[in-house]
Nucleic acid binder design. Structure first.
Lengths: 228, 228
DNA sequence: TCCACATTTCGATTATAGTTGTAGTGTCTA
DNA sequence: TAGACACTACAACTATAATCGAAATGTGGA
């Protein structure tokens, strides 16, 4: 009877808050692990795994196995385009548009991306470290140069500890607002933690944005030559 | 926390078979009544009403009240575009693509649209009746001319009975495959029924398509000057 | 006025999907 | 090899959405 029966199948997969959050999280084009996605959607890993298997079954998401990690990404650009058209017709309620637009602004400026810095600040920092010769860009990773090792150590990071962590040390992470790569991995995490410890940045309540303090402005200028 | 929380809201509305059927039915751009849509989705009017109220609430569908009827249509072109992108990423299974394409072909040729004729046959018929001066086009309706009254009566239709029916007599219906209007309403229904009675058309099993018989080819040529 | 009809509202039932705890598999590192 | 960790499979519970019958509302026509 119905020639287009499976329109609903795809929409069904998008029509659930947890899955929608997972999918929008994947819209940055990066690979994400199941744990990351669970964290972002505020659900347990089991639930995330359950949803991810459904998304894979529905050909919206791909997996790549790397060791004990499983990296998930959107299946193709078509899916991303569909998601974007959804964002287009699901406008934020008028009432809180002012608050929201300022929140988006804050997020674009500087935010945490899982466990490292993203947004303009994250991208600028990475750029600066590349220019200074502390990092070099590989295909999917950044490599710390000898000069960089010296710098990070002087700055107060223990690279040995960071390298011992059971996760990638310094991979590249694509920024949805800036469309540039920024530093992720345990080095990215270590740097961000240190910025928090130094009081250069503070968390903005209830959203993922972070704010650079006055102390931070001076610090970022001196250490990384960045004007915030 | 999440800046784009209501992506899921829209998808949720599409992610259910009955609602998806309703929405795809509305993709022809026409207004449809709740009963029509219930019929198409094979659900009771109560259920259809339930879903339609949700669709209206979600700004995917509009209503216009005309008397005791309520005419539903897609809220805007944006929604139609989203639906089309869905059709794009929910491809029919490869296995039955051949069968499907031939089915689509049949549907484009001639089909029933709720209770009257649509497709190329429906549009050609309407065109022919306009050219012959049996009908005149109004904004949303067709009007039967005196010449037309004579013709329809000679052809074997009882216009008095048709006019007494508690529904619109002869409104214009937009064709999704032909992008032209065709005749609907009780007159459209009466004509189609008569074609069936005369043995000019027969139902194609399991889909909404109809087939013109050899007898019908002669009949349509003589009465309406149409080459099928 | 009364009746027929289109549609909605309400209430109850049924089905199903989302969630999580527990347990298990596989992989990496010390 | 042991233990930490990422992830999945299974099973049970819970929440919620879809469905429909019955009844109500509103409209048009006789």
């Amino acid at each position: 009877m119905n020639i287009n029966p499976n329109v609903a199948e795809v929409a069904f997969l998008l029509g659930e808050t947890s899955r929608a959050t997972i999918l929008t999280s994947l819209m940055d084009g990066r690979f994400h692990t199941a744990s990351e996605l669970a964290f972002m959607a505020a659900i347990t890993p089991q639930t995330a795994s359950f949803h991810l298997s459904k998304l894979i079954e529905g050909n919206l998401v791909n997996v790549e196995k790397h060791g004990r990690h499983r990296y998930f990404q959107l299946a193709n650009g078509e899916v991303a385009r569909i998601l974007e058209s959804f964002l287009a017709i699901s406008p934020p309620p008028e009432v809180r548009s002012l608050k929201q637009s300022s929140q988006v602004k804050l997020l674009r400026e500087a935010r945490t991306c899982y466990d490292h810095l993203a947004g303009k600040l994250g991208v600028d920092l990475t750029e600066s470290m590349l220019n200074a010769g502390y990092l070099e860009k590989e295909v999917r990773d950044f490599v710390v140069t000898p000069k960089g090792e010296q710098f990070f150590t002087d700055f107060g990071l223990d690279l040995c500890i960071l390298k011992r962590k059971r996760r990638s040390f310094s991979h590249a992470c694509l920024d949805w607002s800036e469309r540039h790569h920024h530093l992720a991995g345990s080095l990215g995490h270590g740097l961000m933690t240190h910025f928090f410890e130094l009081g250069w940045i503070i968390q903005v309540p209830s959203i993922r944005a972070v704010k650079v303090t006055d102390k931070g402005k001076v610090g970022f200028k001196q250490a990384f030559n960045i004007n915030v």
